[in-house]
Design a protein around this nucleic acid. Structure first.
Lengths: 340, 340
DNA sequence: TTGTAAGCGTTATCAT
DNA sequence: ATGATAACGCTTACAA
C-alpha cells in the first residue's frame, strides 16, 4: 500500500529547481531561449518529481488543446473505418490527438457533437455530413476553427471541401462494363439523400447513354451502403437477370451482399452476371470472387484533410476545395459478356 | 462579411442577467437549487448571447473533462472496430466523449499515449495491451484514474480486467470439430506473444487430447490476425491436407484468408476441409462459405467496460475481474467428415 | 536571460 | 438562495 503522492505541478518544479515558473514553462515549450545551465537544473527537477505538464491547463491558456476532431456517420462502415485509421496516423504524426465521434447518421446528434467539439477548442474539425439536409455547417461558419468537409459535403458553404470526383467514378464503372461488351446494365445506388450517390449515378447512366446503351429505369436499385441492403437487393436484381448482365454497386459492402445473395441463388459471378463495387477496401479482396471496383484514395484523403487543417491554422494557405480522382481496379467479379 | 463577435463567457451572461457568475454556474450545472425566476433570467441571457460553457475551463477546475479514452492496438482490425463502435455508443449515452487512440501494436507508443491521456484528465481509460511485454500498466497503477484492461490483458496487475474465457473458446472450437467426426485437426493461432492466443491454443489442444485425438505438433500454424497472414498460411495448411480435415483459425479474418487461399487452390470448403473462425464479426457472414465461428460478446464487453469505469468513479463498487463466455455459431464452413 | 504578475473561463468555498 | 473571491495549472506580456 504505497502512498500516492500528489502529482507535481509546474510550481513544484520551479521551487525545486530554484527558478521561476515561467522559466520552467520556457524550458518545456522550447520557444524561448534559456541558459544551458538553467535548463539542466530544470530538467533534473522535472525528472525527480516526475512532472508532466497538465494538458488541460495548458490548453485553457493557450487556446489549443493539440487535438483534432473527426466526425463520421458510421464508425463500422469500412470506408469510414479506413478513413479513421489514416486520419489517426496523420494527426498523431503531427503531434495532435484525435477525438473521434460517431454521428450515427443522426443530424440532431451531429449538431450536438460539433457544438461539443467547438467548446473543447479543438484545433480543427474533419467531418463527413450525415445527409444533404444537415444544417451542421451553419454552426461552424461563425466559429474560428478550421473545418474540412469530407466525402459527403454540401456545396453551399464557405467551409473547406475535400471530395472525390464521384461523377468520374460512375463513368469509370460504366466504361469498364462497356469495354467488356455489356449493354444491359443495372446500378445499386446508395441513399439518394446523399448527394454523392446521385453524382455517381449520373456519371454512370450518362456514360451508358452516350454509348447508346441507356439504363432501363427499372434497373436502378437502392440500398443504404450496408451489407444487408446489398443482400436484400438480390431479389430485385434476380428479376432483372438474365436480361441484365452487369451490376454496379456504389460501395464494396453492398456489392459483397449482392455476391452473397447471387451465390445462394445459384447465379454464377462473373459467368452469368458481372458485379462491380466501389471503394477498394479489404472486403473487396476477401470475398469470392474478389471484387472489381472503383478505388477511392482514402489515405490521400486523410492526409490532405489533416494538412488543410494545419495549413489554415498556421495561416499559410487556405484551400477551398480539392477534387480527388477515382481509379479502376479489376479483379475477378467482372468478365466479358458471353452470348447465350 | 459579417463581424465575428467574440464568444460570450459566463461573465457576460451574469452581467446581462444581473446576477453573479456563481448563480449562472448553478443554473447550468443544476446541482444546486436556484430560484425559478432567477433561472429564467439566466436562461434568457444564455439564449440571447448564445453562450456555451467552455469545456476546457470547466475541466480544469472540476478535474473532469467528461471524456473516456480508448486504446486499441489496431483500429482496422474488425474486432477492435466493432469494439470502438460499441464503446462509443455507451460512452456517449452516459454523456461522455470518446478519445480514441491507436497504439499501432507499438509498446513505446502505447506508453506515450497513456501518459497523454492521464495528462488530459480523462475520467477513465479502457485499453487492450499491445503484448504481454507491455509495461504500460505500470504507468497507470500510480495514477488516480479508473482503468479497465480489455481483451489483451496481463494478470500481474491491480487494474480492472475484462476478458473472454479464451480457454473455453478453444474448447468450444475443438468440441465442434469432434462432434462432426474430425480427428486430425489443425490450428492457425495468433502471435504467441499475445497471451490469449496461447490460452485459446491450450483449450483447443487439451480438448482434442482428452478425446483421444491429440494435435500433431506439425499442425500448429501461426499468423498475426490479419487477412494476409491467413492467406499466407494456406501453403502450409495445404501440405497437411488431406490428412488434416479441419482447421480452426483464431480469428475470423485469418479464417477468411485461409478460405480465400483454399478456394484458389481448388480445395472445397467444407467438403474437403472444415474451417472455423473466431469473433463472429460481419466478415464471417460476408465470405463464402460463411464461417462457423466462436462468438465473442463484443457489445457486452464494451458496455461492461464503460460501466466498470463509471462505477469506480462514483465509488460504487469496484469490480476486479470479469470473465465473459464465448459461444458457438455454426454456419457453412464446417461439416461432417466424409470418408474417402 | 529571467522574474513578476495578470489572466484563461470555469467551479468551489465561503460568507451573507 | 445568492454573491464575492479564491483557486485550477498553465502561458504570456511586461519588467528587470
Amino acid at each position: 500500500m504505497e502512498a500516492r503522492r500528489k502529482v507535481a505541478s509546474i510550481r513544484d518544479v520551479a521551487k525545486r529547481a530554484g527558478v521561476s515558473i515561467s522559466t520552467v514553462s520556457r524550458v518545456i515549450s522550447k520557444k524561448i531561449p534559456v541558459d544551458a545551465k538553467t535548463q539542466e537544473k530544470v530538467r533534473d527537477a522535472i525528472d525527480e518529481l516526475e512532472y508532466r505538464p497538465d494538458l488541460i491547463a495548458s490548453g485553457l491558456r493557450s487556446k489549443s488543446g493539440k487535438s483534432i476532431g473527426l466526425l463520421v456517420p458510421r464508425i463500422s462502415d469500412p470506408f469510414f473505418t479506413a478513413l479513421i485509421d489514416h486520419v489517426d496516423r496523420c494527426v498523431i504524426s503531427h503531434g495532435y490527438n484525435l477525438l473521434l465521434f460517431n454521428t450515427h447518421s443522426d443530424p440532431v446528434f451531429e449538431e450536438q457533437v460539433l457544438d461539443n467539439l467547438v467548446r473543447r477548442h479543438v484545433d480543427g474539425i474533419i467531418f463527413s455530413l450525415v445527409s444533404d439536409e444537415s444544417r451542421a455547417m451553419e454552426l461552424l461558419t461563425e466559429v474560428d476553427v478550421p473545418v474540412v468537409m469530407l466525402d459527403r459535403v454540401r456545396e453551399d458553404t464557405k467551409l473547406m471541401q475535400l471530395v472525390l470526383d464521384n461523377r468520374k467514378a460512375g463513368e469509370i464503372a460504366a466504361e469498364h462494363f462497356l469495354s467488356l461488351g455489356h449493354t444491359s446494365i443495372a446500378c445499386l445506388a446508395g441513399p439518394p439523400k446523399i448527394r454523392l450517390c446521385v453524382e455517381r449515378q449520373l456519371g454512370f447512366s450518362e456514360t451508358l447513354k452516350r454509348a447508346g446503351h441507356p439504363m432501363d429505369g427499372r434497373h436502378a436499385f437502392n440500398g443504404d451502403f450496408s451489407f444487408e441492403s446489398g443482400l436484400a437487393a438480390t431479389e430485385r436484381v434476380l428479376r432483372a437477370v438474365p436480361a441484365v448482365t452487369a451490376v454496379w454497386a456504389q460501395n464494396d459492402l453492398m456489392a459483397a451482399g449482392l455476391l452473397k445473395g447471387l451465390g445462394r441463388a445459384g447465379v454464377k459471378v462473373p459467368e452469368q452476371v458481372s458485379i462491380m463495387g466501389m471503394d477498394d477496401l479489404l472486403v473487396a479482396e476477401i470475398v469470392s470472387p474478389s471484387l472489381s471496383t472503383v478505388a477511392q484514395p482514402v489515405a490521400e484523403m486523410a492526409r490532405r484533410a489533416v494538412e488543410m487543417i494545419l495549413k489554415t491554422k498556421d495561416k499559410m494557405t487556405i484551400t477551398r476545395k480539392v477534387l480527388l480522382k477515382p481509379r479502376l481496379v479489376v479483379r475477378e467479379s467482372t468478365a466479358k459478356i458471353r452470348k447465350g
